[in-house]
């Protein structure tokens, strides 16, 4: 598997959202896209998924240009987007319809196995409104993984969870990543989150969104709860914090100037 983003730019009317984004994702890589709001992170994910077209540039998956959504690329949305009118099981099985296979039973078995891993087995007949935020996320994650995508895109999936549930979800997502043959790309504002989950972090600047820096994280890191308290983790967190605040500092200074006048 190889995903290549070639000179991706995106403009909405006159507003430039993304400029010259070049990223290469190899098989089984966990990449974090981090940056201020308005850096075009979510737009970039939608372009990769084929939900939006870039103004210039190409997205190539295994040499083939992505022009529309494909089952090879999964997506986990910030608001999960599980259908309120379907039960947990129906929501998950929704992903099965267009899988081109002679052995659909194999996928159904895998779906049940995934539900088991995510502790959803006893909630298959529940409707989404009966689930907590964490469980809704698990349903959406399960659904996204059913077609066995080569890449899974995660758009701020933990932002609406409480800190403790989010922490549990980090572990779950990292565990899923480790047992699957899928590359993950996550968009986030949370520095700790991307440091914990990812192998490589790409920092985006805003107005327009350009790549500010790429940081490869140590491959020796064990993703345990202790990781967050290691000195190396702290140093990288500090480095990322300064990178991000520098890129957003102009805006903060402008707000200060305005406030001083008042």
């Amino acid at each position: 598997m190889e995903l290549i983003l070639e000179n991706i730019s995106k403009k909405y009317e006159e507003k430039e959202i993304l400029r010259d984004i070049n990223i290469k994702v190899d098989k089984k890589e966990f990449i974090g896209l981090i940056g201020f709001s308005g850096a075009g992170k979510s737009t970039l994910l939608k372009i990769i998924a084929g939900l939006e077209t870039p103004t210039t540039g190409k997205v190539k998956l295994n040499g083939e240009e992505i022009k529309k959504p494909t089952l090879k690329i999964g997506f986990l949305f910030q608001d999960y987007r599980i259908f309120p009118w379907l039960t947990v099981k129906e929501n998950i099985m929704f992903a099965l319809k267009n899988i081109n296979t002679t052995n659909i039973m194999n996928f159904i078995d895998k779906a049940y196995a995934l539900m088991d891993i995510m502790e959803l087995s006893d909630k298959t007949d529940y409707f989404p409104h009966q689930l907590s935020g964490g469980l809704k996320q698990k349903v959406a994650l399960c659904r996204a993984l059913i077609p066995e995508p080569e890449i899974l895109l995660l758009d701020e999936p933990f932002s609406s969870l409480d800190p403790l549930t989010a922490l549990k979800s980090w572990h779950l997502v990292r565990y899923i990543y480790e047992i699957k043959n899928t590359s993950f790309i996550i968009v986030s504002h949370n520095i700790e989150e991307v440091l914990f989950l990812c192998d490589r972090i790409i920092v985006l600047d805003k107005n327009p969104g350009i790549i500010l820096k790429e940081i490869n994280l140590p491959q020796t890191w064990e993703r345990t709860s202790e990781l967050r308290f290691k000195s190396e983790f702290f140093q990288l967190k500090k480095q990322l914090f300064y990178l991000m605040t520098n890129s957003g500092m102009d805006e903060i200074l402008n707000i200060r100037k305005k406030l001083d006048k008042v």
Partner: peptide, 23 residues
């Protein structure tokens, strides 16, 4: 947003109408 989900899972325009919107 729900229509986007249908597109991601390979649902055709008619499938999206009958299996997502109308439901």
């Amino acid at each position: 947003g729900y229509i986007e989900v249908g597109k991601l899972f390979g649902y055709s325009r008619n499938d999206i109408l009958f299996e997502i919107i109308l439901r």
